[in-house]
C-alpha cells in the first residue's frame, strides 16, 4: 500500500518535471504544443547514448542532457515555434503533431524501434525493504531530485526578477512589453528551460516510463492532463495534478490491471467538463 503510494508519488514527480515546460508554453503564449514529449524523448535517447556508449556516469549525464536539450529547445523556438504563436489553435495542433511524427520517425530511423534502457549504476538499483514499505533507491532519488527542482522553480518564479518578469508576461503580455519587459526573450528562455527539464525527465524516466520512438505520442495525453487539469500557469496546480495522476495511474495499474488507462481518461473527461479551466484554477 505505502509502496504503491510512494511509487505513485515518484511517478507523479517525474510527470511534473516532464510537463512543467508545457504548462508555461500553454500559460504564457496560449500555445498548444503537442510536441513537448519530443524534447523528453531527445533527452532520453541522449542519456542512453551518453551512459551506455560513451560511459558517462548517470548522474553526470543529467546536466549535460539538460543543457543540450535546452539548446535544442531554444533553437527550435527561435527558428520555427516563434512563427506559429499567433496562429489559430488548429494550426498549432497540426504543426506540433507534425513535429511529433517527424521526431518519432527520425528516432525510429536512427535508433530502431526497440525499447531503450539507461544503464543505472549499482547504488541506484538497491531497494530498501522494511516490514511495511519497499522503496527503490532510484525512485527515492527521483522524489528527492524532483522535489528539490519544484522548490527551486517555485523560488525562481516567486522570488527572482526573472520570475517576476515571467509572471507579468503570463498575466498580460502587452502591458508587460509596455513596461519594457522583452516578452519574446523571457519566453524563449522559459521555453529552453522547459525543454531542458523535459529532457531531464526523459532521461530519468527512461527506466520507469519506457523509452521508444512512440514516447511523445504515448505520453502526450499525460502531459496535457497534468497541464489542463492542473490549470494554467503557476507551479502548484500542475504539480498537484501530476501527483494525483501519478498515484492514480500507479494504483490503477496495480489494483485494477484489467481496466487499464480507462479510469484515468474517464476521470479527466469528468474533471474537464466540471472544471474546464482546471481543478486548481484561480
Amino acid at each position: 500500500m505505502l509502496t504503491v503510494l510512494f511509487d505513485g508519488v515518484a511517478y507523479g514527480m517525474l510527470l511534473f518535471v516532464l510537463a512543467c515546460g508545457l504548462a508555461v508554453t500553454l500559460g504564457v503564449m496560449n500555445f498548444i504544443n503537442l510536441a513537448h514529449g519530443a524534447f523528453a524523448m531527445a533527452g532520453g535517447y541522449l542519456a542512453v547514448a551518453l551512459v551506455n556508449r560513451a560511459g558517462v556516469p548517470f548522474l553526470a549525464c543529467l546536466p549535460i542532457v539538460f543543457i543540450a536539450v535546452a539548446v535544442v529547445g531554444l533553437a527550435m523556438e527561435r527558428l520555427v515555434y516563434r512563427h506559429v504563436y499567433a496562429r489559430s489553435h488548429l494550426d498549432q495542433v497540426l504543426f506540433s503533431i507534425g513535429l511529433v511524427f517527424m521526431a518519432s520517425a527520425m528516432v525510429d530511423y536512427t535508433q530502431g524501434s526497440a525499447q531503450q534502457f539507461v544503464g543505472l549504476p549499482a547504488f541506484l538499483r538497491v531497494r530498501f525493504v522494511t516490514s511495511f514499505v519497499s522503496i527503490g533507491a532510484y525512485r527515492l532519488l527521483i522524489v528527492g531530485f524532483c522535489g528539490a527542482l519544484v522548490l527551486l522553480l517555485h523560488y525562481i518564479l516567486t522570488r527572482t526578477g526573472f520570475g517576476a518578469r515571467l509572471r507579468a508576461a503570463v498575466d498580460d503580455p502587452r502591458v508587460a512589453s509596455g513596461l519594457g519587459i522583452n516578452v519574446g526573450a523571457v519566453f524563449a528562455i522559459t521555453f529552453a528551460v522547459g525543454s531542458g527539464l523535459a529532457g531531464i525527465g526523459g532521461a530519468m524516466g527512461a527506466e520507469i516510463l519506457g523509452l521508444d520512438p512512440t514516447f511523445p505520442l504515448k505520453y502526450m495525453v499525460y502531459f496535457l492532463i497534468v497541464v489542463t487539469v492542473g490549470g494554467g500557469a503557476g507551479i502548484a496546480g500542475p504539480f498537484f495534478a501530476a501527483l494525483l495522476l501519478g498515484v492514480a495511474d500507479v494504483a490503477g495499474k496495480y489494483y485494477l490491471p484489467e481496466v487499464g488507462n480507462f479510469v484515468i481518461y474517464t476521470l479527466m473527461i469528468v474533471a474537464l467538463v466540471l472544471r474546464p479551466r482546471g481543478l486548481f484554477a484561480r
Binding site: 520555427v80 512563427h83 506559429v84 496562429r87 494550426d91 498549432q92 497540426l94 504543426f95 503533431i97 507534425g98 513535429l99 511529433v100 511524427f101 517527424m102 521526431a103 518519432s104 520517425a105 527520425m106 530511423y109
Partner: peptide, 13 residues
C-alpha cells in the same frame, strides 16, 4: 510518418 509530419509542419509554416 516522417513525410506526413514534414508535410504538416510545412503546411502550417
Amino acid at each position: 510518418q516522417f513525410w506526413v509530419g514534414a508535410f504538416l509542419v510545412g503546411l502550417v509554416l
